[in-house]
Write a protein that binds this DNA or RNA. Structure first.
Lengths: 210, 210
DNA sequence: TAATTTATGTCACCTCATGACAGATGACAA
DNA sequence: TTGTCATCTGTCATGAGGTGACATAAATTA
């Protein structure tokens, strides 16, 4: 890895840290790009060469965690049912986060806290989730052997996304708490959902029951 | 109702219609406030006296539909279980929308289509949803007789929000399709969820099973 | 060292959004 | 009808977010 690339990573991390620091102390809206850039000693223009927007820098850590989740899901064995694969991937994500450098973990926690207290960022994070949602639906449909346009995969992903949101919401208090909460939520889900609910059955068309 | 108020309503609707029209033809980002204001023959400054932002005007119709839902939920009898109340309120909302003036319905549909094809607005709509989420959780907790911080009400609302998203997603093709989709989704939910899943039981604390 | 690539800074520009103030217009009472 | 008052509106000025163009400085490669 050359000097050039190392410097880029360094600048990028410095921008993220400076931004999170300012956002958390002065507030997200009250902080300007100029202030962030000034703290890292780069021009404001350079900021936008690293991040496409103010929101982008704030959500870079959450976006990373999403990527981790996607990767974990892809690594789950084909034999697992959709919901099992999703929830195991979630556990893997939390574990991966906990295994990271303290520096990275701190960034993640700061971003979590910031997002929680900033409605605009909460919305942005939801957008990130929704952008992945279609990929998730496609993956679930593949595992179920059904079509992506079918209702069931959408339903499964939708339920799971909801679970993820609840965990994420509790992540403010640290990754340990988040891991516990994940267990609780999954337990609750097991108790609420019928066995095999996430698997396609012979009669997929709804019309007979009512 | 005086002339002044009538004019205000008129201007407001004109701004919404002009905005939706331009957004749908030229795209959301490509359309400027100046263009919207010019089409209605008001100053750009006046636009911001009716709407707090560009997003606000685009999401005014969705925001209205949310209000309808909240009102419908409040009107549900106390005896209904949380999930039943939520889903019936949803049905009421769709029915209310279908019963509106064609002009209003058209606005709603245009907004739906616009939101669907504009990621930034998708995020905004999610924000609207999340703003209500806490109220929903509180309402469900009240009906369950549990605490608002408890996991179950959050879970119920989360699942339901997911269902709502699926319906909403299909609302692009018209309110009739959306009503059908709602039925399908609720049927699927009934098939997937255990009876009484949305009611608090004696043993709420998870620890025994695993 | 010379040539090439690439990151950065500077400058200009546009759009979104807000505050301040003056003028126009509807509301209302005499 | 007229005068007063409240309110809506337009104009102006300002600041922040975001982008394109171009020159410069630095790192890579030969």
């Amino acid at each position: 890895m050359g000097l050039r690339e190392r410097k880029k990573v360094q600048t990028r991390n410095a921008l993220i840290d400076a931004a999170l620091e300012l956002f958390l102390t002065r507030g997200y809206e009250a902080t300007t790009i100029d202030q962030i850039a000034a703290r890292v000693d780069v021009s404001p223009r350079t900021f936008f060469r690293y991040f496409s927007s103010k929101e982008d820098v704030a959500l870079s850590a959450p976006a990373d965690s999403q990527d981790i989740f996607l990767a974990a899901l892809a690594a789950r064995p084909e034999t697992e049912s959709p919901y099992t694969a999703l929830s195991q991937a979630m556990r893997t994500m939390v574990a991966t986060l906990r295994g990271k450098e303290p520096e990275d973990a701190a960034r993640f926690m700061k971003a979590r806290q910031l997002v929680e207290e900033t409605p605009a960022l909460l919305a942005g994070q939801m957008r990130l989730l929704m952008e992945n949602e279609q990929r998730l639906v496609a993956e679930v449909a593949r595992r179920q052997g059904t079509d992506s346009g079918d209702l069931l995969p959408q339903f499964v992903v939708s339920v799971f996304t909801g679970l993820g949101m609840i965990c994420y919401h509790s992540g403010t208090q640290g990754l340990d708490v988040m891991a516990e909460r994940l267990d609780d939520v999954l337990t609750l889900a097991d108790r609420s959902l019928r066995p095999g609910w996430d698997l396609a059955t012979a009669d997929t068309s709804p019309s007979a029951t009512d």
